[in-house]
């Protein structure tokens, strides 16, 4: 893009991107996703892929709408939804009471537990808050995992470090700057099977406490769009019923993630 067109485009966007009232009979749904959370959503050769993306495409097909994808950093993913940069978040976002204060959710489309990961040479075996007192724990910021660490482990005397991306968290675990990280079990399973993840292992139990980890992962939608919530719920039920969901599940995982 030349400089002049960029300026023109920018000016247009600020002046006249007021997408008007017709937005309510949904023909196009803009989907926000992170693109840095394999295997659920990631960018490969400039293309956005993953379980979330396949589910989103299947849902949009059922809803008979056209879907476009917008990549957005995780820490801004809810503010950007509220600000109207896109209409739905399909990015492995857990349905929690805290988030429900800000946005609405569809029913869940998958549910996986949380777990700690540490290095293979680590002496950590017990992951209770008392046992991890004085340890340095990491998680991706603004997630159920970071909230859990902040509210439970930091209060019990652990030092908590939060990173903008799950990948940065992995990097600092490998580097030994954190003693363990709390993350999604399926995401970590994927990472442990990569070359960089070879250093590390799961440790401790799975965490499912509803208060922190919610009721599974849903589509995030603005509260003023209840009809869109209903559309997504119907579509989720449909892909569950007609086998589309099962096919996508099997493409990615040898176990059921619902």
């Amino acid at each position: 893009m030349s400089l002049a067109t960029r300026i023109a485009a920018a000016a247009l966007m600020i002046a006249a991107a007021v997408t008007g009232a017709s937005a309510k009979d949904w023909k196009v749904v803009r989907v926000g996703t992170e693109g840095a959370y394999p295997p659920f959503n990631y960018i490969e050769n400039g293309e956005i892929k993953g379980f979330d993306i396949d589910i989103a495409k299947a849902l949009c097909a059922k809803m008979k709408v056209e879907c476009t994808f917008v990549a957005q950093d995780w820490d801004g993913i809810i503010p950007a939804l509220l600000a109207g940069k896109y209409d739905a978040i399909i990015a492995s976002m857990s349905i929690t009471e805290e988030r429900k204060k800000q946005i609405a959710f569809s029913n869940k489309y998958y549910n996986t537990p949380a777990t700690f990961v540490t290095t293979k040479d680590s002496k950590i075996t017990d992951t209770s808050p008392e046992a991890l007192k004085g340890k340095v724990l990491g998680a991706q910021a603004s997630t159920i995992h970071s909230n859990y660490l902040e509210d439970v482990y930091a209060k019990a005397g652990a030092e908590v470090k939060l990173y903008p991306k799950i990948d940065d968290t992995h990097l600092d675990l490998v580097n030994g700057r954190i003693d363990a990280l709390l993350s999604d079990k399926v995401v970590e399973l994927e990472w442990l099977n990569t070359k960089d993840g070879a250093c590390c292992k799961f440790v401790g139990a799975e965490y499912k406490d509803k208060k922190y980890f919610g009721e599974g992962v849903g589509v995030g939608i603005r509260k003023d769009d209840p009809e869109l919530v209903a559309m997504f719920n119907k579509a989720i039920a449909e892909i569950r019923a007609d086998g589309t969901y099962k096919k996508i599940n099997e493409k990615y995982f040898p176990f059921d993630v619902y």
Binding site: Q102, S146, K161, L162, Y163
Partner: peptide, 17 residues
């Protein structure tokens, strides 16, 4: 990951928006 004033601010924003 340093919790200076800016770090705390970002933490608070990331939960409260």
């Amino acid at each position: 990951t340093v919790y200076d004033l800016m770090g705390v601010t970002r933490l608070a924003f990331s939960r409260s928006y």
